[in-house]
Amino acid sequence: MDNSEKNKRSYSVRMRTFAVIGILMSMACLMTFGAGFTLVEKAAMAPSEIPVKDSVASVEAFKEVYSVLMSPRCMNCHPSGNIPLQGEDSHLHAMLPKRGLDGKGVYSMKCTNCHQPVNTPGLNTPPGNPDWHLPPADMKMVFQGRSAYELAKQLLDPKQNGNKNLKKLIEHADDGLVKAGWNPGEGRKLPPLTHAQFKKAWITWLTTGAYAPKDK
């Protein structure tokens, strides 16, 4: 309880600060948004990780992040509905597999019934990963249809991001399933950035204040 109270307070303080910056940045047509790092979290960070706020760099970094997240390799498993997407045109997955409560499919249509621990060789075969799944039903982490602003906000919201703090968010760049996007199986396009570029942009975004572009 104490912590959450504290969070709220520190959050509102920062919001005010950002609001000032926001005004300053208004000529660049940007709206800012800050990640709510608690003091405890800050204490846990190594000195080099302590955010140096830089809204321009942060927004630029998020643009790159967003281009990756909205590419089929990432978005296809972050659909707005309960059915994953498929292909470069992100159409509804053939045979309409359902998310299920745990994100792992339902009945005889569980993800891993087709998606193996590794990519199946050949064209048009199921890509693989040991942990293949969608976000669970209580934390859908939708990418499809989200604006950059909305997605940034959602990624940072502990209620929507699986309770991830900055450290965990940073670590998530190296998650096995995230990295699977760069090993998509034969015939599939890679995301627009390399994983290293993506990771750099992701960390830059998070550690420079986690600003997001204003919605057009």
Binding site: M95, L96, P97, K98, V106, Y107, S108, M109, N113, C114
Partner: peptide
């Protein structure tokens, strides 16, 4: 609906 969900892969 459950049947459709389960059997659409066949």
């Amino acid at each position: 609906q459950d049947i459709d969900d389960a059997m659409a892969g066949n």
